[in-house]
Design a binder for these strands. Structure first.
Lengths: 144, 144
DNA sequence: AATATAATGGATAAAAATATCCACTATTCT
DNA sequence: AGAATAGTGGATATTTTTATCCATTATATT
């Protein structure tokens, strides 16, 4: 459904958000450990999220990654997905046609549109903030 | 959502099914032309579908690919997807965790489960046969 | 100012997915 | 039997995705 990069991106964001709510910045190492991801690769992904202003990064000692507490509640799953994977999940054709729409649809266009719309609605509804809760309670996990 | 191989596989199947209903076998070249896909790569995919008994292939002159007319109506989209992409679409974790279930869920487990189940139901309901109709009428397309 | 810390950016490397090539087998037709 | 047709299987190439390495920049602390 999503690229590995995007999966790491979402998992990272949930972890960072949770720690930010507890007033803590986290280092790259912390993140990679928490979500069990390759460190250097995770770094690239966090850089991307930083450029999209989804997370903050600070250099130097006392530095690290964080999310603004006030804005945190506004960041939706969809922001992360489109930052990393683009909008293919929403608009791309299920059968890979470059252009596929009402007027020139692929044979599964309408069937997929329904699913896609539900996925879109879900991603645009769920906040990263809300996902930190079960993780914080130990009821949901970010690594195996 | 699906791999390119799977997209080609579905498009091929719709084309082959439609031609089979008209009593025609089609060659690899025909298929690749009809769905605008790389010929040799498409060959590999058709081989796979053949091994899974989703399509028939016959060698020699008068040979080609076809689908049994009686069974044709029974083949669901899900058969093709799981033949080519496996069952990751149905069972895989949205955040890429190796094991993710009710007892040890990722933070988006339940939100994704809903979408996944709808996708699964859709794929298990739609027959290839039904998809040939709009294509035959020129109301749906398999290439740009 | 010197040192240590932590993210950044660019260059590579490794792995997986996509795509191509070609010799081979099976089949049909003459 | 010989020639032509069409799928098969194995090896290889290309592209994309995933992953690593390391020198550099920015910041804080002593």
């Amino acid at each position: 459904m999503f690229s590995k990069a995007c999966e790491y991106g979402i998992r990272s964001s949930i972890f960072i958000a949770g720690q930010s709510k507890a007033g803590k910045k986290v280092s790259l190492i912390d993140v990679a450990e928490a979500i069990e991801s390759p460190t250097a690769y995770t770094s690239k992904i966090l850089q991307k999220l930083t450029r999209y202003n989804i997370i903050n990064s600070d250099k130097g000692p006392t530095g690290g990654f964080s999310m603004d507490k006030k804005e945190l509640a506004m960041v939706k799953l969809s922001s992360i997905v489109s930052a990393i994977d683009g909008d293919d999940v929403y608009n791309g054709c299920g059968l890979g046609l470059k252009q596929c729409n009402e007027f020139k649809p692929c044979p599964v266009h309408n069937h997929f549109k329904k699913i896609r719309n539900e996925l879109k609605k879900m991603l645009e509804t769920i906040t990263i903030d809300s996902l930190t809760e079960n993780y914080a309670k130990g009821l949901a996990f970010l690594k195996n």
